[in-house]
């Protein structure tokens, strides 16, 4: 009987790794907690920096899943055990699944924006998150306030829950800056009369074409970038949002009203990752994400023989990097199985 792999987490990394391992002739069981594959990708409309529809990426990933991949949805894992050679994943209903290798691709959760209490998410009607805005894009809806009006002014708050000691997350979530710029441009495309202000600490446009997008936002669309972290937001009588921020380039406090405030929520380790790490005896890094055995050379392996990691379970990453990492994990797993 051929060797098999269980992959836990049916998002981008899980789907791509499953496709690559299956393409090399191994049986894969792909476990997903929700009722569909794709993870966060299914909630996004267009992707930075190319503005490709997320559905195209999902279609590509789905097409890779051949008949060697068994997809199991709505899965709850009760326990994971390992003997000398095999992993046993025990499901909530008692079913036991056996494999020769195990890959964790349980990804990330979005930081709960309500934890930044001073920004008023979940309290003020017109404070939303980047994910909420993306849902509006996905529904092809006009961008509107809670009062069903087109916003005249929209504010974006960068680094919500990232690079923030008070929130307990010192790390950068990497993709929020460019997501904010992309979303700001998309609002301008849909509703050109909207004024847009992005409040940032510094813009980390690290990857290819990100800087181009940032320039386009300023030069073509007149989106304004104000360097300063929000101290608080409050609700005006008309339900617009009063924001207070220090403009650190002019060294002056700034108070302005926006009709809609978008919080760019960062990444946090997913709650499932934490549970599974406990079951498997994996120690997270100081940021809470899981850590491979070597950060340079063995980037998908763990201290547990046969247990691998891929994607944002190891920390914030772009989709491109997640796909590449999933392929890398697939190669490492095949090499391990053929030992």
């Amino acid at each position: 009987m051929g060797k098999s792999v269980i992959i836990i987490g049916g998002g981008i990394a899980g789907m791509e790794a499953a496709a690559r391992i299956a393409a090399m002739g191994k049986e894969v069981i792909l476990l997903e907690k929700s009722d569909q594959l794709g993870g966060h990708l299914r909630k996004w409309d267009r992707l930075f920096p190319t503005r490709r529809k997320s559905d195209e990426v999902f279609e590509y990933l789905s097409n890779g899943l051949n008949d060697k991949v068994t997809i199991r949805l709505n899965i709850k894992i009760n326990k994971i055990k390992k003997d000398d050679r095999h992993f046993f994943v025990i499901l909530e209903d008692g079913e036991s699944l056996k494999s020769d290798a195990l890959l964790l691709t349980t990804g990330y959760d979005l930081f709960e924006a309500g934890k930044k209490e001073e920004y008023g998410y979940g309290i003020y009607d017109n404070v939303i998150t980047s994910a909420d805005l993306e849902a509006m894009f996905r529904n092809s809806a006009e961008i509107k306030t809670s009062g069903n009006q087109k916003p005249r002014r929209v504010g974006f708050v960068h680094c919500v829950g990232s690079r923030d000691e008070k929130a307990g997350h010192l790390y950068c979530s990497k993709v929020c800056c460019v997501t904010g710029v992309k979303q700001a441009i998309e609002i301008k495309e849909k509703q050109p009369d909207t004024e847009i202000f992005c409040f940032y600490m510094d813009l980390r446009m690290f990857d290819r074409y990100f800087e181009d997008l940032y320039y386009e936002a300023q030069q073509k669309w007149g989106i304004q970038f104000i360097r300063g972290r929000l101290s608080e937001s409050c609700e005006n009588p008309d339900h617009s949002i009063l924001v207070k921020v220090e403009d650190t380039l002019t060294g002056r406090p700034l108070k302005m009203t926006v009709d809609l405030l978008v919080l760019l929520s960062g990444f946090v380790p997913s709650s499932d990752t934490n549970k599974l790490a406990d079951m498997l005896g994996l120690l997270p890094g100081s940021d809470g994400f899981l850590t491979p055995v070597d950060e340079h050379f063995r980037t998908n392996e763990t201290q547990v023989d046969g247990l691998f990691l891929a994607g944002t379970v190891k920390g914030p990453a772009t989709i491109e990097n997640t796909i590449t990492d999933a392929r890398s994990a697939a190669i490492s797993i095949i090499k391990y199985l053929e030992k």
Binding site: G114, G122, I123, Y124, D125, E235
Partner: peptide, 9 residues
């Protein structure tokens, strides 16, 4: 204003 949000806090 979403009063449930305040109650949660």
């Amino acid at each position: 204003m979403i009063s449930e949000g305040k109650k949660r806090i």
